[in-house]
Design a protein around this nucleic acid. Structure first.
Lengths: 220, 220
DNA sequence: TCATATCTTGACCAGATCGTCAACTTTTTC
DNA sequence: GAAAAAGTTGACGATCTGGTCAAGATATGA
């Protein structure tokens, strides 16, 4: 668990790295709870245990902090999408993707909420690059659905709308957790709830797309 | 299109009603775009074409405006749920519900976004009554799914998670419109996009729940 | 007509906000 | 160990915030 050995000249800018991390960790918590406008730098500084002026030493503006977090999140999502490859059996690939996406949303709930907030407010702080990246990767992965459909492995479901369904269902539990908890009659959502959600989503989506589960076709 | 004839003593408080409507209409626009904290009364007043002090004459606080809008929305949702009754054929009932919900979210996008924002931020301004109402009506409607499953009209899908899937998919296009538009490679979502969304969602969900469409079983 | 209720509004307040700055301390480098 | 670089911080300014108020304008009803 040691830090990288081949770090930059300075011993990896220990102080800089540590304080930036402190700030970002505090910021994501407050941004998620109150949104961009509802968050004050003073509060971030307070939660991070630093004087406000010190926060400004590391980040030029409030936007800079916000953008740093959003950009990091977008990169992480690509990883879940890596589960979707044309070669794999659709049932396995889709199930893995759904589980990975749900799991990520649960473990990074704060970032998820920040992004949801950003989407609701029209993506004020989503750069053109961010949008283009998301669009490109979605379009690319959509080709896999088309290929599967062509190969008779699934129904010819509109790939983009299917993607949106996947996105909506896998984000909802993290983003609107209080609504989900309210419906499920529980105080807070736990890992169990997310597992059950994955199970239901996978079952409905796979069957709904005409994808036969491997277990049924091969094992029995 | 005349106003009610049997209005209260005063000719229906014309002024009061008109100005409150002006304020609410301006408020929902800004709340949706910037969230509760990002919205200033001055901006609402400005958009409504009234001096700020006049806004405070009709609404005691900013919260009062916000809550008025949220409460109105929750009532409206019940109407879409009215499509779900045990007697109807599951395929018709569910399809109608999905269409009604999507349609409503499109026509009342601003209110939808306000509520999404509220959910992401933990429901700070959702009263206990609001929550209880939403829970009760959801639990009650869930019984219909159970009854259908018992009658062999659909698979025994967990009703609450199914409801959440429906909610998530039907709200996403309105709430996260920029993400959907980005994925669909269009500048703004139009009625066409919502119709196509309804079509895909209905197809996947019905088939995914093992509900046979009426058209197939009866007409052909 | 006149009294009463409703409505309008500019001015104001106390507190919070973002972001700056210049002086200070610590760490690194040679 | 001294010079330079990096990090720390209290105080400050300009602006904006939600909300109040009291004085005036307008509408209503008898």
């Amino acid at each position: 668990m040691k830090k990288k050995q081949d770090a930059p000249p300075t011993p990896e800018n220990r102080i800089r790295a540590r304080n930036k991390a402190k700030i970002l960790s505090a910021a994501v918590r407050i941004f998620a709870a109150k949104g961009f406008d509802g968050t004050s730098i003073a509060e971030i500084a307070n939660l991070a245990g630093l004087p406000k002026a010190n926060v400004y030493y590391y980040f030029k503006t409030k936007q800079a902090i916000y953008r740093t977090i959003i950009a990091g999140l977008i990169l992480e999502w690509d990883k879940a999408l890596a589960h979707l490859t044309e070669e794999r059996h659709p049932a396995d690939a889709l199930a893995d993707y759904i589980r990975a996406k749900l799991d990520f949303s649960r473990r990074h709930q704060l970032e998820s909420k920040m992004f949801a907030n950003e989407a609701v407010h029209g993506g004020r702080f989503l750069s053109r690059r961010d949008r283009a990246h998301m669009q490109a990767i979605t379009v690319e992965k959509a080709k896999i659905f088309k290929a599967w459909a062509k190969a008779g492995k699934m129904d010819p479901v509109d790939p983009m709308h299917l993607f949106i369904m996947l996105w909506a269902t896998t984000q909802f539990y993290a983003d609107s957790d209080i609504l989900a908890a309210n419906a499920l009659e529980t105080r807070r959502l736990g890992a169990r709830d997310f597992d059950k959600a994955a199970e239901v989503i996978i079952a409905v989506i796979l069957k709904g797309c005409g994808i036969r589960s491997r277990g049924i076709t091969r094992r029995s």
